[in-house]
Nucleic acid binder design. Sequence first.
DNA 1: TGGATTTGCCTAAAAGCTTTAGGTAGTTGC
DNA 2: GCAACTACCTAAAGCTTTTAGGCAAATCCA
Lengths: 191, 191
Amino acid sequence: MARAGLTTELLVQAGAELADEVGFEQVTVSAVARKFGVKVASLYSHLKSSHDLKTRIALLALEEMADRAAEALAGRAGKDALVAFANVYRDYAHQHPGRYAAARLRLDTETAMASAGPRHAQMTRAILRGYDLAEPDQTHAVRLLGSVFHGYVSLELGGGFDHSAPDSQETWARTMDALDSLLRNWPGPTP
Amino acid sequence: MARAGLTTELLVQAGAELADEVGFEQVTVSAVARKFGVKVASLYSHLKSSHDLKTRIALLALEEMADRAAEALAGRAGKDALVAFANVYRDYAHQHPGRYAAARLRLDTETAMASAGPRHAQMTRAILRGYDLAEPDQTHAVRLLGSVFHGYVSLELGGGFDHSAPDSQETWARTMDALDSLLRNWPGPTP
DNA sequence: TGGATTTGCCTAAAAGCTTTAGGTAGTTGC
DNA sequence: GCAACTACCTAAAGCTTTTAGGCAAATCCA
């Protein structure tokens, strides 16, 4: 019997594709094995567990998004950078809903630190260089941006904006305007 | 053999508690049956399926949050209302992480329409009465608020703000300031 | 009150997923 | 060309979901 030539990389890649096709929840070791025409037990030489598979898909998604974000940020500043950066997340989520869901998997501290997560935070900070924010306001702003991007995309993907006017694209554009305006006029703490 | 006195209500309630204890992902029909000391198959007289159970937990969570929000909103306006409303979500998520996760379950259109979801949107609109926003900006603002609340709570619950200063409570307070300021100075569309 | 009906929980069973243990056949290296 | 290694296999146990059919407790009603 010919060998299938499995590697962890290949399995994770297939898992990511499967996630985009049928949803991250439906990604199982069994389904991936089926995709390769191979018995389930065979995958356990390359993966520690089902959770290991999911974690690796999450890490892949975080890397891919960080790479896209880095490219989008090159040569841009201010609102231009803000919008380009935000669009990376939104577009990625639309193109790869399963991977995006994977990226929301809760990672343990160690794994999270070794992931592309810190790169994302770093890039968000880079955007704020176009605005005039000192610490700790900068950190507050980083967190706010992360919240808006993730929250918006998450609600949009969940169909939250589907059945009402105006369309989501319009709100997204105006959300960018609102964030830019907010960052340019960042309020001090209320007394 | 004495009967256990199961009802759909009781099972959903137990499922919700289980979700808060061990995570929404871990809620299974089996686990709920175990909690009642009853055989799994017995639950299928009260629940259509595992998905049915999860959906009902989601609906319960949405109701509970809407009830809390309605109470918080009574007699408040402007920033006061905004902050009280936002705190309802955040507090609920902290007290009932499993239920909160359940509330993020994607519902089909029909179920969503019959859920407390529309009440949430209605209340968010009510808050905006304290600010001067005409349509379609009001809808944009409703969506933005939803995104920030959900996004922030989701990242916070995922541990995203755990390992950096300043603490999350501080950022939350400043996020409320920022939103209030933004709503009072809502920018027009960029040309 | 006692029989008939309903209904609640049961046993049984099939099918799918996860994970471990141990075997066999390709592939690699000397 | 043979030894060693590695990739994939079979087998099996334990868990979950879901359906089908059965017995007994609760309820209804004369």
